[in-house]
Write a protein that binds this DNA or RNA. Sequence first.
RNA 1: GGGGGCGUAGCUCAGUUGGUUAGAGCGCUAGCCUGUCACGCUAGAGGUCGCGGGUUCGAGCCCCGUCGCUCCCGCCA
Length: 614
Amino acid sequence: MRFPPAVKSQISTMHRYRTHTCGALRAGDIGIQARLSGWCHRIRDHGGVLFIDLRDHYGITQVVADPDSAAFKVAETLRAEWVVRVDGKVRARPDGTENPDLPTGAVEVYVREIEVLGPAGELPMPVFGDQEYPEDIRLKYRFLDLRRERLHNNIIKRGEIIDSIRRRMKAQGFFEFQTPILTASSPEGARDYLVPSRLHEGKFYALPQAPQQFKQLIMVSGFDRYFQIAPCFRDEDARADRSPGEFYQLDLEMSFVTQDDVFDAVEPVIRGVFEEFAGGKPVTPKFPRIPYKEAQEKYGTDKPDLRNPIAMQNVSEIFHGSGFKIFARILEASATAAVWAIPAPGGGSRAFCDRMNSWAQGEGQPGLGYIFFASEGGAVVGRGPVANNLGGERTEALRQTLSLNDGDAVFFVAGEPQTFVKFAGAARTKIGEELGLIDKGRFEFCWIVDFPMYEWNEDEKKIDFSHNPFSMPNLPVDEFLALDASDREKILSLRAIQYDIVCNGVELSSGAIRNHRPDVMKKAFAIAGYPEAELEQKFSGMLHALSLGAPPHGGIAPGIDRIVMLLCGEENLREVVLFPMNQRAEDLMMGAPSEVSPKQLRELHIRVVRPGTS
RNA sequence: GGGGGCGUAGCUCAGUUGGUUAGAGCGCUAGCCUGUCACGCUAGAGGUCGCGGGUUCGAGCCCCGUCGCUCCCGCCA
């Protein structure tokens, strides 16, 4: 790496580094002396004349040197991504050489002096251009990746979105609080990140999975509308839409509210932020409320992508006792078995249906039955093996039920809904994608409501909490307290006052009206088989607080990273997080996690026991 | 913990049925070029084909194992 000698500045009145940013100069500045600092984005050396695109956070300005300029010799030594200071005269570009793609494209800086502030070695990854690079290289050299336009813009947009959220929350009367980062491990939920205590041998802090208990305690403390852009920590495996380790939530909680009050407070904030940053893409004007059960039946998931117009239907009636023996027997054998239809408008070709069938087999399914409809002698008839066995009359009934026509198809899944629902949902998504039915240019929101409170655990033959054990059951308190724990039917049909916001198939958040009554909570846990003593032991602080005057309260916690991801049009959270970890929860740039010194371990009363050496 | 995909030059990738000295673009080095903005032209350097083993006269290519990255399942109240 060479450092060309810096030429001492002759313009002592100027700022040490710049009079303008690289995005500032316009035609009106022609004739002035300017000083710019930035990175050599792109260098074009024509021998006689040499162009440097100088880039900083604000933009790009073209710098020109020719053999007449004093700094030509220095200019020739510059390489990509060197950081330099440039002095020169702002002048108009010659006629016909203006660059309309650049805000500064009418002018250029004719260089008089160049000072190298920070030279760069050969780059592991160029900053210029928009080529894809491997994740590990990108993460190891995150600071280079962040110089690139796309990521740089994403991070800026992230900040602007968070600003907008704060503004909107405060306008709704919410107040921002800070809750502890070092707290206690909680037995419920995800795996905790633990921090060993130096002063208390053998004891650990945990990083909060969410400020859940704190925000409830803030309500018990008599504050009314809490929010926080809250860091959350969970030691679970990553997904494209689930960062390993840490992420941020717009955490909020309100006192004396019903579900409707929470919706009325949150929906305008989320909708407003999306409208502000969606770049003109339409946003659902009023979020529809879809009961959990309906979401499962129509979309095969509790986070439906409503941009996909396909809605499934239960068509068991049509197959019951029909000539299509495979399904008829399945329905015969079990009262809870069903056949669901997945309409595929425009999918009416044997080639498409066969392709979907092989896809299903690739997913480990026996196959995907189908009928496709075609015109024949003026009538629309069903084709394929299912239609042949089902017969004309029932096939026609299907066609009418599902409003299908010439050129359409329908696929079928059969069996016990609880075992096939996930696959049915995947098939609905796949069909929608393959047929191009999903309008990517919009944001489709919905609330998912009425989550079941409990579910049957077939493995352990017991009743479990279905989702959040601290949600209020949707039943008058007296009735709930009077429940007979053996009335399995009634208990399994109970719903919790719990809700999710879903956008384009991404679960943005879940929330609930909390269970603020110790007696109801004890009953709720008793139903799930937790003895009162255990509850007292694990959640004594919370129970105690709730027993000394707790207001009814509820809230929700939309994921900031996911909101930003959707608004940036990205499919992976790493594209909207400043310094993300890889899938194995490593920070390749900082080298985290890392080994620590024996002294540190001793102070923390920790001994590392490696697998197979104990 | 399980399954899929990928791994060839600093980077992005090609590489036929297993067959001579493994190629291209970008980047890098040297030279030429006075109006480019993905500048152009010429030449050059740069390779343990992730790693280990096997099959074969012969392996980048086939087989087994292993490691890394990634996507998914489990998990994430």
